[in-house]
Nucleic acid binder design. Structure first.
Length: 568
DNA sequence: GCCGTTTTCGGCCCGACTGTTTTCAGTCG
């Protein structure tokens, strides 16, 4: 099995952990972690890049040395440096770093003075009181460790749509204490959120934290200081809240929105001018030279405003410096939905009801794309039923002014890449979305070939939910996205960003990869009910994270333009 | 280990909170 990017990143992270415990130069440690983040965030596999003779040292945070080491890892499946570190520092020291209160220094102390190598060693050491008298280990830390060892809390991330519900309730609860805004990865609209970072501008900072700890849903208070309070909600979601004065609002919003990597890059720009950037403002000595708004801070650093969705240190700062930031697509740009189901198959509403809901959103068109016959569970349509639905749509269309129901289908891609309906049937339709709903675990090469073969059918206009993943529930099927996007470009087939909150498929990185190759994208909700049209905003979020403009998205176009753009 | 509008050497983001200390180090985000 070839080495995946995630495994390379994990090896680099483990190396950083062990180097840190060993007491190595912290900047060397940081370099390994930075490289891990870079590898993790690549839209394509390192293996594929090497196969194409691409120079890894051109990636940010990866120089000649690490490029060579990473190439070795891909070639051999092993990381010599990591293996050597593991021999020197045997056990589960890396795992111990995940425990609360344990960082490299205390782990090293445990290792040297208490001969703790594994989590089990640590359990025993606590039981027999071996930690008493160990410098830096008091009763509180000991108790916390014992509890954490009992019940290792699994790292949990929440889907954005779930976090949004929690966040909106919290914001409403705290509103009377000042201006409340949710920052963090939530504001950057990441597909999942690890915690909520709330920012409150208030004259009475302490009152805000005091109110938060009385919130009904709070399970644990993790920290409660004069300016910062942290709690864990019953759902497991952690909430950090910080109160800041108005004059620091912009700097604080910038700081708490992140990403961390983006912030570090901004601070680098500040440092180069002998300034200091923190959550209170941009400072020259002790004089605040910006901070009330994000725009002000960016401007002082010589940059235009960078939208939160782009703040990942993936090249946005270079683009901003050059004045060539893309004008990101918005919900208002969308003129129609190209993936919609009705009660003819597994939807809950009639065609007319779905159309009325789409028109109520201000759309000019909607493609009705019910399932094809292979989806027997959801009463998929055979050629006769497709013909019948076409007549029905013609009838309903007569009742609308300035709105069109496009005749479409979500046709299954069969195991061999053929489609579930004959070309003669597909040819009668305006929009054909082709999707994989079966045989998720083919070998990567076969899965890739299967999907490309489906796109080679000239009837197909859009590839639906291209990776099939369900966030937190089902892994994407293994395909070579580099090949799929290249094929989409050559064949002029659009790729879908499925906006359903469990899917968000393509994801941000793949959407960006497609855009950069000139592939057209469709942002569609896959709505099975009238309410599901509102999911469009989640698709837009990911599109913006992929740097897409309205021009990259087919369903921002008026109907006539859309029809010439969609390959049929 | 990386990197360059101050640098090919010498820097590398910054502050709050906690628990442990008696003035601060380690951890965390």
């Amino acid at each position: 099995m070839p080495v995946q990017n995630a495994e390379i990143a994990a090896m680099l992270d483990q190396t950083a952990d062990l180097l840190e415990i060993k007491g190595e130069n912290q900047f060397r440690v940081r370099a390994y972690r930075r490289a891990a983040r870079t590898i993790e965030g690549l839209p394509q596999s390192v293996r594929a890049m090497l196969a194409r003779d691409e120079d890894l040292s051109e990636l940010p945070g990866i120089g000649k040395d690490l490029a060579g080491k990473i190439a070795d890892i891909v070639a051999s499946g092993h990381f010599t440096l990591l293996d050597r570190l593991k021999r020197k520092l045997p056990g589960e020291l890396g795992d111990m770093a995940a425990l609360p209160g344990l960082g490299p220094k205390r782990i090293k102390l445990l290792y040297d003075k208490a001969h703790v190598r594994t989590l089990d060693d640590l359990r025993k050491a606590i039981r027999i009181g071996k930690l008493h008298g160990l410098h830096g280990f008091g009763p509180v830390i000991e108790k916390k460790l014992a509890a954490a060892l009992e019940k290792p809390a699994a790292e949990k991330r929440f889907r954005l749509s779930v976090a949004e519900a929690e966040a909106e309730a919290l914001v409403a609860f705290l509103r009377d204490k000042g201006r409340v805004v949710v920052a963090g990865s939530y504001r950057r609209r990441r597909e999942t959120v690890g915690d909520l970072d709330l920012l409150v501008t208030s004259d009475d900072a302490e009152a805000v934290g005091d109110k938060l700890v009385t919130y009904d849903n709070v399970a644990d208070v993790l920290a409660h200081g004069p300016t910062r309070t942290a709690v864990r909600l019953r759902s497991g979601l952690q909430v950090d809240i910080r109160a800041v004065p108005e004059k620091s609002y912009g700097a604080a919003l910038l700081y708490f929105t992140g990403s961390k990597a983006h912030n570090i890059a901004l601070r680098g720009l500040a440092n180069a001018r002998k300034w200091k950037l923190n959550e209170y403002g941009l400072f020259l000595g002790r004089r605040r030279i910006a901070g009330a708004t994000e725009e002000e801070v960016y401007a002082r650093l010589g940059l235009p405003y960078i939208p939160p969705e782009m703040r990942e240190d993936r090249g946005e700062i270079v683009l901003a410096k050059a004045g060539s930031l893309p004008k990101l697509v918005t919900v208002e740009d969308i003129r129609g939905d190209l993936h919609v189901h009705s009660n003819w198959t597994d939807g809950t509403a009639t065609i007319a009801e779905m159309a009325a809901a789409a028109q109520a959103r201000g759309y000019a068109y909607m493609a009705l794309t019910d399932h094809s016959r292979r989806q027997t569970m959801s009463h998929g349509l055979d050629p006769a039923k497709v013909a019948k639905q076409i007549r029905e749509i013609d009838k309903i269309n007569k009742t609308f002014n300035n709105f069109t129901i496009l005749k479409g289908i979500e046709v299954d891609i069969l195991k061999d890449g053929m489609l579930d309906l004959p070309d003669a049937t597909l040819a009668q339709l305006d929009v054909v979305v082709a999707s994989v709903h079966s045989f998720f675990d083919l070998r990567p090469d076969d899965q890739t070939e299967r999907i490309i073969r489906a796109m080679q059918n000239r009837q197909v206009s859009i590839l639906g939910h291209p990776t099939g993943r369900l966030i937190g529930m089902r892994e994407p099927y293994e395909i070579d996205m580099d090949r799929v996007t290249s094929a989409a470009r050559e064949l002029n087939c659009a790729l879908e960003i499925n906006a359903e909150p469990d899917r968000l498929d393509l994801n941000d990185l793949h959407a960006h990869m497609a855009k950069s190759k000139g592939v057209k994208l469709a942002i569609s909700t896959d709505a099975h009910s009238v309410n599901a049209f509102q999911y469009m905003r989640f698709g837009i979020d990911q599109a913006r994270r992929g740097w897409l403009t309205a021009k990259d998205v087919v369903n921002t176009r008026p109907l006539s333009e859309l029809m010439t753009l969609l390959r049929r």
